[in-house]
Amino acid sequence: MIVFVRFNSSHGFPVEVDSDTSIFQLKEVVAKRQGVPADQLRVIFAGKELRNDWTVQNCDLDQQSIVHIVQRPWRKGQEMNATGGDDPRNAAGGCEREPQSLTRVDLSSSVLPGDSVGLAVILHTDSRKDSPPAGSPAGRSIYNSFYVYCKGPCQRVQPGKLRVQCSTCRQATLTLTQGPSCWDDVLIPNRMSGECQSPHCPGTSAEFFFKCGAHPTSDKETSVALHLIATNSRNITCITCTDVRSPVLVFQCNSRHVICLDCFHLYCVTRLNDRQFVHDPQLGYSLPCVAGCPNSLIKELHHFRILGEEQYNRYQQYGAEECVLQMGGVLCPRPGCGAGLLPEPDQRKVTCEGGNGLGCGFAFCRECKEAYHEGECSAVFEASGTTTQAYRVDERAAEQARWEAASKETIKKTTKPCPRCHVPVEKNGGCMHMKCPQPQCRLEWCWNCGCEWNRVCMGDHWFDV
């Protein structure tokens, strides 16, 4: 396979590697080409510095992935760790964990309700045991953590790749202090920090972006993250068709209702045909949960890209028209025109101005929308079919299609509260000796007794199943 190397943020060049090629071997190839010592090179990928003893497969490097290699003399205490030698983080029983690669970060837990604080980093599902597709590297999971809308060759929703760059020099040479644990960490600028490894760059702020994971991409090709779309790892039924499908869209209502993408497309087109989208002054033209839940309008309007190009163009047109109407304007009634106009409040005669090729020149009556006339309008008909009709959803289907309910059931079956801080902690095999993952707590306690870890627990039921 081919990976592209950008040395000291210059133009990239291809390097041929195998899945079992080590990072140090990659350094040696680059060092020979650039005429520099291999031990002064640092390989940066997806916000993480890659260790010498890791392989291309370990690092989730795919065909035509772009890695950054910078030349920086080692500072005291760094060289041993980078070589894969006596790194205290690798000691058996050590409590410190390697910062998780962005290629394996899962933010789907952050669609849980606000009262489930902490689960994004504490609760991990076991539903990723799908067998890898044919042709994928051994052991590589097909679980997708992110979804994007690819405006490039795909023109559809695709699995996405999370990447990070330095907000100062805009190069992907920043190593994160810690990985993101929720969508806010990724979507809110300057929320996460790190250290830029580019020479002479003092940058410390992280800037995240997404790429389409279905095809090789260049540095400049980015895609918009659709953070309401998630892999259906909890096997929730769709609120409309009641099938279990994946991926799904999880509405931001209190129940976190789930809808499959085909039904979401149908829901949007139906509402669009009836012009029953909601115009929100802050958000724009949007839709609420299909069950009509309060405070559930979709905030990231790129989710409506699921409509496809033709329907999305209609959505944008109707949204612009609705904006004009909300501002007190009118639409030209001549067939084939429909231009938005903003006449004076007491102006009865409205002319669709033909300047700049935008208007048709038609003069019409503001009251009856017919060709302009003197005197009273002959008839004014009330528009028919403008009443909002509820999208029919079966109550039982709505009850079963809740992301929140599956989460709470998982928590109930696989977790116990920490005796000190009461945060839910998952036990997935292993011994009875637990350690609270909350940095402010870190209590060592017994899963069996529910009390602080002691010699009695150690001698009596340390390794009970």
Score class of each variant (00 low, 15 high):
residue 6 R to C: 05
residue 10 S to I: 04
residue 13 F to S: 04
residue 14 P to F: 03
residue 24 F to Q: 11
residue 33 R to P: 01
residue 33 R to E: 05
residue 34 Q to K: 06
residue 35 G to P: 01
residue 35 G to F: 04
residue 36 V to N: 00
residue 37 P to K: 08
residue 40 Q to S: 12
residue 41 L to S: 01
residue 46 A to R: 15
residue 49 E to G: 00
residue 52 N to V: 00
residue 52 N to S: 07
residue 56 V to C: 07
residue 58 N to E: 15
residue 60 D to F: 06
residue 63 Q to A: 12
residue 65 S to T: 05
residue 69 I to T: 01
residue 74 W to A: 14
residue 79 E to H: 12
residue 84 G to I: 12
residue 90 N to P: 13
residue 91 A to N: 13
residue 97 R to F: 11
residue 98 E to H: 09
residue 102 L to C: 10
residue 106 D to V: 05
residue 108 S to N: 13
residue 110 S to M: 08
residue 112 L to I: 13
residue 113 P to Q: 13
residue 115 D to Y: 05
residue 120 A to Y: 05
residue 126 D to I: 05
residue 129 K to P: 12
residue 131 S to G: 13
residue 133 P to L: 11
residue 133 P to D: 11
residue 134 A to P: 11
residue 138 A to K: 11
residue 139 G to R: 11
residue 146 F to A: 03
residue 146 F to D: 01
residue 148 V to R: 01
residue 150 C to M: 00
residue 151 K to L: 11
residue 157 V to C: 06
residue 166 C to Q: 00
residue 172 A to E: 15
residue 178 Q to N: 13
residue 179 G to D: 13
residue 182 C to S: 12
residue 192 M to E: 02
residue 192 M to S: 04
residue 193 S to C: 06
residue 197 Q to R: 08
residue 199 P to F: 06
residue 206 A to L: 03
residue 212 C to S: 01
residue 214 A to I: 08
residue 217 T to R: 07
residue 221 E to Q: 09
residue 223 S to H: 09
residue 226 L to S: 00
residue 227 H to M: 09
residue 236 I to P: 00
residue 237 T to W: 03
residue 238 C to W: 01
residue 239 I to K: 00
residue 251 F to S: 02
residue 254 N to L: 10
residue 256 R to N: 09
residue 257 H to P: 00
residue 261 L to F: 08
residue 265 H to S: 07
residue 267 Y to M: 05
residue 268 C to P: 00
residue 272 L to T: 00
residue 287 L to E: 01
residue 292 G to C: 05
residue 293 C to T: 01
residue 293 C to S: 00
residue 304 F to R: 01
residue 304 F to D: 01
residue 308 G to R: 03
residue 309 E to Q: 13
residue 311 Q to Y: 04
residue 318 Y to E: 02
residue 319 G to I: 05
residue 319 G to A: 09
residue 319 G to Y: 07
residue 322 E to M: 04
residue 330 V to W: 04
residue 347 Q to Y: 07
residue 351 T to Y: 08
residue 354 G to Q: 08
residue 362 F to Q: 06
residue 365 C to Q: 03
residue 370 E to A: 07
residue 370 E to I: 04
residue 373 H to G: 02
residue 379 A to H: 08
residue 380 V to F: 08
residue 384 S to V: 07
residue 384 S to Y: 10
residue 388 T to F: 08
residue 391 Y to A: 06
residue 392 R to M: 10
residue 393 V to P: 08
residue 402 R to M: 10
residue 402 R to P: 02
residue 403 W to N: 03
residue 405 A to I: 14
residue 413 K to E: 14
residue 414 T to Y: 12
residue 415 T to F: 11
residue 416 K to P: 04
residue 419 P to H: 03
residue 419 P to K: 04
residue 425 V to H: 07
residue 427 K to Q: 09
residue 430 G to P: 15
residue 431 C to Y: 07
residue 431 C to P: 07
residue 435 K to D: 13
residue 436 C to S: 00
residue 440 Q to M: 12
residue 440 Q to P: 08
residue 442 R to H: 15
residue 443 L to T: 13
residue 444 E to A: 14
residue 446 C to N: 00
residue 451 C to K: 15
residue 458 M to A: 15
residue 459 G to A: 15
residue 460 D to N: 07
residue 465 V to W: 15
